[in-house]
């Protein structure tokens, strides 16, 4: 099975908390959420966003909305006021993560 973008099975949203970013990933289906839980680990997300230099990545669960919430500590180069990036508040991190290529079972893709 070829890799598909994470957006095939999930949507999401991201934002800032000072110099930390949060990236929420929300599965479209229960089976999709079960897959996310097993495979979209804090370590995987930390590796994906490593170029942004987060000091660590923590994962929280919101199973009630089939959601995983990742907090990327220190990933915003100083945060809303000090960061020199265009995206000072991490608004684009969710759509960036949803591009992540993932190897999911075929039945998840053809939902």
């Amino acid at each position: 099975m070829p890799a598909v973008p994470l957006s095939t099975i999930a949507h999401g949203r991201s934002g800032d908390k000072g110099n930390h970013a949060n990236v929420a990933v929300i599965a479209y289906t229960d089976t999709g959420f079960a897959w996310l839980r097993d495979h979209l680990t804090a370590a995987a997300v930390a590796e994906y966003f490593a170029p942004l230099g987060p000091s660590r990545v923590e994962r929280f669960e919101a199973a009630n909305v089939r959601g995983l919430n990742f907090v990327l500590y220190g990933a915003l180069a100083g945060g809303a006021s000090r960061s020199l990036r265009t995206d000072t508040q991490g608004k684009t991190l969710a759509v960036a993560l949803l591009r992540m290529p993932v190897d999911v079972p075929d039945d998840l893709v053809s939902r």
């Binding site: 949203r13 949060n22 929420a24 669960e61 919101a62 199973a63 959601g67």
Partner: peptide, 24 residues
């Protein structure tokens, strides 16, 4: 759902002056 988790750290502990709200 997207907005529920927007700018949230631990969704089980959303701190406000009124209450610590559990969004889960």
């Amino acid at each position: 759902a997207e907005q529920l988790l927007y700018e949230v750290a631990d969704p089980a502990r959303y701190y406000t002056p009124d209450v610590v709200a559990d969004f889960t």
